[in-house]
Nucleic acid binder design. Structure first.
Lengths: 122, 122
DNA sequence: TTCGGATATATCGAAACTGGATATATTCTT
DNA sequence: AAGAATATATCCAGTTTCGATATATCCGAA
């Protein structure tokens, strides 16, 4: 299990939402699945992050009532909050991807000059 | 100017020290030079980090008195604290490089599936 | 000889972040 | 009927971040 820093979490969540709208629980499952269990974003990481994205206008949100078949019509039912990447969110993601690649490239310069670089391939 | 997270700072500093012993100020200059000014590690980022590396046994340290030619023999002179990567530090670095590459690889999986991935090449 | 810039190490503190634990409620499966 | 899975959300103690600040020496130019 590899832990994700917020920076990476944000990049991953934005990338997931770039494919299409989703909601917290589904995103967390998606991340676990698409990383073959290596990445995990827990509720305490996920919801503050999504709230922040919403506050910054990177996503728009809407509630869906998830009623069971034949459920009490008066019951509140389970609520599902959908997140949709906004225009601003798409632009932000593009910027972040570029930044990420730049950092990556320079970082590789340092790492590849360390003698340990060879050993770490196994 | 790209900001470095502590995780990356640590990787970079360890990589620099893997080449040979150095001291705080030189390391920060080294990082700026080898990243063509893109990475910068300020004193407030550097020294707590080096202290932490020392506390964790990843580096060993020693003081050097930097006397000027013909300086007052009684003056304390400028002190320079050298940091040398320990065995433990070398192993830690190898581990970190491997971890870094793993995270990198999975992260790329997410990013490359986002439509913005194409746009971010300019 | 004196002044400023570069060298050199180090702490402070407010703000942000981290992540396990916890809370609450519904729906599905056996 | 019980328990696992679905689903959202906050709490909080500990850590990280990073600009600002402190201190002192060395070097070159005017």
């Amino acid at each position: 299990m590899l832990t994700l820093k917020q920076d990476h979490s944000q990049l991953v969540v934005l990338s997931v939402l770039a494919v299409g709208p989703s909601y917290g629980y589904a995103i967390s499952k998606d991340i676990a699945a698409r990383s073959e269990g290596h990445f995990k974003l827990s509720p305490s990481g996920m919801y503050p992050l999504l709230t922040k994205l919403e506050k910054n206008g990177l996503v728009t949100t809407g509630w869906e009532e998830v009623k069971a078949a034949g459920a009490d019509p008066d019951s509140t039912g389970r609520r599902r909050k959908w997140y949709t990447l906004s225009d601003k969110g798409h632009k932000q993601l593009a910027k972040r991807i570029e930044h990420h690649r730049q950092v990556q490239s320079i970082l590789d310069g340092f790492v590849s000059q360390a003698p340990e670089s060879e050993l770490a391939n196994g």
